[in-house]
Simulated scan of single mutants.
Amino acid sequence: MININLQAKIAVLLSTYNGEKYLDLQIQSILAQSHSNFQLIIRDDASTDGTLKILKKWGAIDKRISVVEGKKILVLH
């Protein structure tokens, strides 16, 4: 369940799959922006690396971050 912050003026959406290598820097960059009245909603696409652990860590650190655990979305070419 996503906790939507209706007071936030901006919603930042981030989707990831096996992104553990870059997640800390991405999240740090978003949190370092001068505008702080936002909600960061991050959806994990059933990663098999440490992505979800990193996301949960950040979700516990900053109340503006909501983590959504998703199922893998298959794309057919």
Results as ranks from 00 to 15, higher is better:
residue 1 M to W: 06
residue 1 M to P: 09
residue 1 M to E: 12
residue 2 I to C: 04
residue 5 N to K: 15
residue 6 L to R: 12
residue 7 Q to H: 05
residue 8 A to P: 00
residue 9 K to P: 00
residue 11 A to S: 13
residue 13 L to I: 15
residue 14 L to N: 05
residue 14 L to G: 08
residue 14 L to Q: 08
residue 15 S to W: 03
residue 16 T to A: 11
residue 17 Y to P: 00
residue 17 Y to K: 09
residue 22 Y to N: 10
residue 23 L to T: 01
residue 23 L to N: 01
residue 24 D to V: 13
residue 25 L to E: 14
residue 26 Q to C: 13
residue 27 I to K: 02
residue 27 I to E: 03
residue 27 I to F: 04
residue 32 A to G: 07
residue 32 A to T: 05
residue 32 A to S: 15
residue 34 S to T: 10
residue 36 S to C: 02
residue 36 S to V: 04
residue 36 S to P: 00
residue 37 N to I: 03
residue 37 N to W: 07
residue 39 Q to L: 04
residue 43 R to K: 13
residue 43 R to A: 15
residue 44 D to V: 06
residue 45 D to P: 04
residue 47 S to R: 05
residue 48 T to S: 14
residue 48 T to P: 00
residue 49 D to P: 01
residue 50 G to D: 06
residue 50 G to A: 08
residue 51 T to E: 12
residue 52 L to C: 01
residue 53 K to N: 12
residue 54 I to K: 14
residue 54 I to Q: 13
residue 55 L to H: 09
residue 56 K to W: 08
residue 56 K to F: 11
residue 56 K to L: 15
residue 56 K to Q: 15
residue 57 K to H: 10
residue 58 W to A: 04
residue 58 W to E: 03
residue 59 G to L: 06
residue 59 G to R: 05
residue 61 I to Q: 14
residue 61 I to H: 10
residue 61 I to R: 12
residue 61 I to K: 14
residue 62 D to P: 00
residue 62 D to Q: 11
residue 63 K to I: 03
residue 63 K to S: 14
residue 64 R to K: 15
residue 64 R to C: 04
residue 68 V to H: 12
residue 70 G to W: 06
residue 71 K to P: 00
residue 72 K to D: 05
residue 75 V to Q: 13
residue 75 V to F: 11
residue 76 L to P: 00
residue 77 H to Y: 09
residue 77 H to L: 05
residue 77 H to N: 08
